[in-house]
Computed example of a mutant assay.
Amino acid sequence: MGEPSFLSTKQGRKLAYHRTEGRGPWVVFLGGLKSDMQGTKAVFLEEWAKKQGRAFLRFDYSGHGESSGEFTEGCIGDWAEDTAEAVAALTDGPILPVGSSMGGWQALLLARAMPERVAGLVTIAAAPDFTEDGYWAGFSDAQKQTLEEVGHVELPSDYMEPYVITKRMIEDGRDQLVLRSPLALPFPVRFLQGTADTAVSVETAVRLLEHATGPDMQLRLVKDADHRFSDGPCLGLIAKAIDEVEQASL
């Protein structure tokens, strides 16, 4: 796989990345919360892009993987800054973000920030606004009190060690919400969602589809696929969606 390169951002962070030159638009993979660029989907898409001679970028947000910082120091806005800096410094011309889970939220923030750069968009189990609609809405009064007094709460995860959710992440998340105001996606979009996903519900996917506006937007439900969306058929569907979106953007 090789050693990563590092990008120093104006916020003083060092972001680890792997960048593959090729024909555009640049496919930019945006990972999920506490995941990293060594995940199955990111590595599969890099190999797929190389075989096709396509430009591809994968990177770690700060506090993730091999990038600088601690996870508990970060928040949605910080990772949106990381994403924007990586795209600005490491790609040129049109981009095609592929966002998984929290990366789906990041892809939507990126599309809102620089719509002129986005040729199309693919999300996988996108989790927009989850700090508010998932975490905060699900907290008990005792957890909310702990958050206020201690500054963080720990939540169990189906996939790894407990998530430490900080007060800063909750409060910053409210500044990054995308489902409370108009969300224009004026390019081809494919939302992919598994029906057996226990982290992001089908209802969330439908809410995103109904809320966003755009000329070419589809939600693809995959029966029995879970949140990882990483088996062979699911990986093939991601690649197919990228091809579809690129062709539709021409």
Rank of each mutant, 00 (worst) to 15 (best):
S35A: 13
E47I: 02
G74V: 03
A205D: 10
S140P: 01
V200T: 15
E81V: 03
L209S: 02
G138V: 04
D243V: 03
D197Y: 05
K10H: 04
Q193D: 08
P97T: 14
A107E: 06
A248G: 05
M37K: 14
D224Y: 08
M160P: 00
H152D: 05
P128F: 09
H227N: 12
K240C: 01
G232M: 06
P94S: 14
L155C: 07
A111D: 04
T204G: 03
F139L: 05
A225D: 15
P215G: 15
H152F: 12
G22N: 05
T195L: 12
Q176H: 12
D175Q: 13
T72G: 10
I238W: 05
G39E: 07
E66P: 00
A125Q: 04
A88D: 09
P215H: 13
L108Q: 08
T198G: 06
R168I: 01
Q218Y: 06
F59K: 00
L90E: 06
P94Q: 13
Q52P: 00
Y17H: 10
F59G: 00
P188N: 06
D133P: 01
L219W: 11
L7K: 03
V153A: 13
E85G: 02
F71A: 08
E46K: 07
L57Y: 10
Y61D: 06
E171P: 00
R168N: 06
H211F: 09
R228T: 07
I95D: 12
L155V: 11
Q176P: 00
T9S: 03
A127Y: 12
P94T: 13
I124S: 01
R220D: 09
T198C: 05
A241M: 05
K50R: 15
V245Q: 11
Q11E: 12
L235Y: 13
V178T: 11
A84E: 09
G151L: 05
M37T: 12
L33M: 15
L221F: 10
G63D: 12
F56R: 01
R54D: 06
F71T: 11
S100E: 13
A42Q: 09
A248I: 08
V150P: 00
Q143D: 13
V118S: 07
M102R: 09
K144G: 04
S181P: 00
G93P: 03
D243G: 07
T123D: 02
R112M: 08
I165Y: 04
D243E: 14
S35T: 15
G104C: 06
D172E: 14
S230I: 06
P128R: 06
E73T: 15
L179C: 01
P162D: 10
L219E: 11
L177K: 13
G138D: 07
H18E: 10
P182N: 04
G32T: 10
L235Q: 14
